[in-house]
Amino acid sequence: MTDDNPSENQNKLLVVWSSGDREVALSMVFMYVLNARKMGWWDEIVLLIWGPSAEVLAMDQDLHKPVKELIKHGVRVTACQSCAELFDVGDRLVRMGVHVDYMGEPLTRMLKDDWKVLTF
């Protein structure tokens, strides 16, 4: 069966950053996401901060500016509430402009809606 009307979600990207390595964020995650947004490679991009990356982001001042730049360019930056609570960094993330919420259901919905997923 062919689909003459491709899913509207086929051009949506979810980037899951779970690494606790700041260099992964600086040299891969932020660079790709920013360029993808600026160049229009994807209609919608969500950066999900998951696991140890929540603590790394909250505590490393050098990472704040690139994340704010992503937000400025229209990337939805969100963090897992459970992870933020685990590392006690929710308030810090919110002050940076990161949306903090429980992500189990939203993540499942994106996966079921055929978002493309890139993990770091």
Results as ranks from 00 to 15, higher is better:
E23L: 00
S53H: 08
S7A: 14
G40M: 07
D60Q: 11
T108K: 04
V67N: 02
P52G: 07
E105V: 10
S53L: 13
K68E: 11
H64F: 05
V56W: 01
N9F: 12
V77T: 05
L118W: 06
G90I: 03
T78P: 04
Q10E: 12
A79Y: 03
S19M: 01
C83M: 08
D101V: 13
K65V: 10
P6V: 09
K38R: 13
K116V: 13
M96I: 13
V24H: 10
A79L: 05
A36G: 11
E85H: 09
V75K: 01
T78D: 03
K112E: 14
Y102F: 06
V46D: 07
R37K: 14
D21I: 04
L14H: 04
E44Q: 14
A79N: 04
P52W: 04
E85M: 07
K65C: 00
V98G: 02
V117C: 11
D113R: 06
A36M: 05
E23F: 00
R92E: 13
Y102W: 03
M28K: 07
E105D: 09
C83N: 11
D114Q: 10
D62S: 13
G74F: 01
G74M: 07
V77S: 02
F87P: 03
H73K: 13
K38G: 08
V56A: 11
L47H: 02
H99L: 14
